[in-house]
Design a binder for these strands. Structure first.
Lengths: 180, 180
DNA sequence: TTTTAATATATGTATTGTCATATATGCAAC
DNA sequence: GTTGCATATATGACAATACATATATTAAAA
């Protein structure tokens, strides 16, 4: 569901391109809110063509069998329709926190190690997100209105990471106290 | 993967029970970190029996065809093994934020409505999480060590919700400014 | 010149999850 | 007494995703 509209969004924002291009646009763009691998992108593009939300043309210039996908007017309508829908909160799916939930079965020492590992990974992620801000500033020259929303979603990612990092620290402190 | 160990965890913490019971334990317990529907729970229990991590007994007392599942020693070992694994950050999957990412295609007025709806839903969730704290305090009488970890994961849920709510407000303010 | 990496598309398979549906018992309310 | 709800298990169908694999071209590096 979501991937379908992510692809429509990319085609709407950045024009006709190959499935391979869509993948790299994804990586440079909304990868912090959604991800997909190439095989999934190709399959979803096929479905979008069947639904007539996207049309394909063979790229005669390249001998690589390159296909250029572009969004149709029906596709734009479908995208806008989806964008207008109300938000709904989905159930959380955090394998890491699920693990912690049952961690009374392993030694607290191990749990503390895991939390420290998690914290350092989150800090790496946080630094990466910060660097994405530059990419958005760059993109803002071409797509100023869109860039505002890109920054909003990145801000949420940063908030979420910061909250997670703070929680790691606080939880580690609490575990230290319990040891004494 | 995760559900498998969630079920093992529930059987380890709360003893032998039916698939139906596992579902309600889930709802009362780790529903804020993982969810599953009944059909998925039954299928996963079958798999766990095949793997010999769980064993079944027909409940002869009930004419309802009730089956009682219990964790085996191999199951406990598998659970502890999984619990000891390092955390790894998974790619984010937020359909709501994906929507916002491409929202330059719809009027800002609509986006603001969506954010207000989202915020009120998050506030409802937040209140529900707060009330779960009571359930944990109650469970702490029987499972004091486990309850510490339950509270940790719930705290993270609360932090995440609070960060999301704050971000909604901030983002709404920014959208208001842009209108002027 | 050969090898490696990037570009480019596509399918097979397994896993997970969702939703619908079927079936049957036990118990309480009306 | 029958209606409705909670208890209880199970399967079929479908969608999304992940991972492996196959194939072929192009361009740069060794």
């Amino acid at each position: 569901m979501a991937l379908k509209f992510a692809i429509l969004g990319i085609l709407a924002d950045f024009g006709p391109q190959s499935g391979y291009d869509v993948k790299s646009m994804f990586e440079q763009g909304p990868s912090h809110v959604w991800t997909a691998d190439l095989s999934q992108i190709y399959r979803t593009l096929s479905n979008l063509v069947s639904e007539q939300f996207v049309k394909v043309e063979e790229d005669t210039d390249s001998a690589r069998g390159r296909k250029v996908y572009s969004i149709t007017s029906e596709g734009v309508a479908a995208l806008k329709n989806w964008l207008s829908e109300d938000y709904e909160i989905l159930p959380v799916r955090e394998p890491g926190l699920l693990r912690l939930y049952f961690s009374s079965h392993i030694p607290p020492k191990r749990v503390k190690e895991q939390l420290r590992t998690l914290k350092s990974q989150l800090e790496v992620s946080h630094a990466e997100y910060i660097s994405m801000t530059d990419a958005i500033q760059h993109g803002a020259q071409y797509k100023p209105q869109a860039a505002i929303y890109w920054q909003f979603t990145l801000d949420m990612g940063l908030q979420w990471l910061q909250a997670y990092i703070d929680w790691c620290e606080k939880t580690l402190e609490k575990l230290e106290e319990l040891d004494q």
